Amino acid sequence: MISRRRFLQGIGCAALGVLSAPAYAVGIEPFRLRIQRYRLTPPRWPADLDLRAALIADPHICDPWMGLDRVRSIVAQTNALKPDIILMLGDYVASHKWQHAPIPPQAWADIFADLSAPLGTHAILGNHDWWDDPQAQRSGKGPTRYGRALIRAGIPLYQNRAVRLEKAGRAFWLAGLDDQIALTPSRKHKRRRWQGRDDLAGTLAQVSDDAPILLMAHEPDIIGKVPSRVSLTLSGHTHGGQVNCFGYLPAFPKKHGRSYAYGHIVETEGSTLMRHLRLATEPRHLIVSGGLGCSILPVRFGVPPEITMVHLGGHLGGTGETPTA
């Protein structure tokens, strides 16, 4: 039988846990940083095309959670990983109210300009990079003020664009979509629903040969429309759920038994129409980065901020992954 003293000790530990978890989620985990690694050879990617890609997703730059000194540290740690290419997956700005005065976009864009890789740094925009720009919301056109800051910093911005690159004489295509929920519903702007500025078909139409394709798309839900011609889709947006309670992601519940919140996902189902007709589709591979910052609230629990390293090819025997915290 448990003693009274042992029982009171247990109650005290439980109470301490209840009180300390929020403090950890606000004051400790958002400031951590890990390197998350994946190794895979997805379909249509040659095993002898060895490519190391570093993913920078969702920094949501603001003081005190993601100040300029921390951005410099992330840039230095990314460079130290010696990637072949660096891909920035959007949501550079923080729109939540839990911050000091906003940081000018050119200040952080110029720091990201110090990212270094033989095949360069390439960027797309996220939903917050559209939502936080009133002029872009009025005109419905980009690039937004945050996109222009990246361009001025010398970082190529992909808005429904595909570019052919080479590594050691082997070609591949890098494609990037504009955001899928860029424009918010607004009576003022005469929009009744969310509108995207992405053009998947138009982007892939720019691919002119059979070299493999990497696709940057901020929101991972696009995977349901991505054709098997694309070797790998790379996304952010979800922050890995931002709160993970022993596998339960309250912000990203599963839809129809599927979740695109985090990690290496192999999608085997096609569009709603294809599922209705019971038409088979080839597996499509998606990696969703856990990202770096916070959205809505400056809280992370069970999903530390990360730089995501994706190692493709390299004579790997088949498809697989090796995530490392």
Rank of each mutant, 00 (worst) to 15 (best):
L150M: 13
I124F: 00
R34Y: 06
K97T: 13
I28T: 02
R164V: 02
L115G: 00
G10A: 15
K255T: 10
A76F: 01
P134N: 07
L119P: 03
V310S: 02
A261V: 11
A101F: 11
N127R: 09
E219W: 04
L297C: 02
E166R: 15
T238K: 06
Y146K: 03
V299T: 05
I265M: 08
I56A: 05
Y158G: 04
Y262V: 09
E269F: 07
G290S: 13
L16S: 12
E219R: 15
L234M: 10
N127H: 14
Q36H: 11
W108I: 07
S208A: 14
P104H: 13
L33I: 10
M216I: 09
V163L: 04
V230P: 00
L40F: 08
Q195W: 05
R300N: 05
V93S: 03
T233K: 01
A14N: 02
D199M: 08
Y248K: 12
P64E: 13
G320Q: 14
I35W: 10
G291F: 11
V288E: 00
Q106W: 06
C294H: 09
R197A: 11
I213N: 00
G90N: 06
K97D: 14
G257Y: 07
I265S: 10
T268V: 15
I11D: 00
L177E: 06
E306C: 06
V163C: 04
H128Q: 14
D209K: 12
S186W: 10
G154C: 09
Y38S: 03
D178F: 04
L68W: 09
D210F: 03
H60A: 00
L157R: 09
L68S: 04
P227V: 10
Q206L: 07
M309A: 06
I2H: 03
I213P: 03
V207L: 05
L49K: 08
Y262A: 12
N160M: 11
A168F: 11
N244W: 11
A76I: 01
G257M: 05
A109C: 04
L8Q: 11
A23S: 03
I213M: 05
R152D: 13
A168T: 15
G317I: 05
G240Y: 01
I265C: 07
Y146P: 02
L125G: 00
W65Q: 13
A57T: 04
P46D: 07
D209G: 07
R138S: 09
G17S: 12
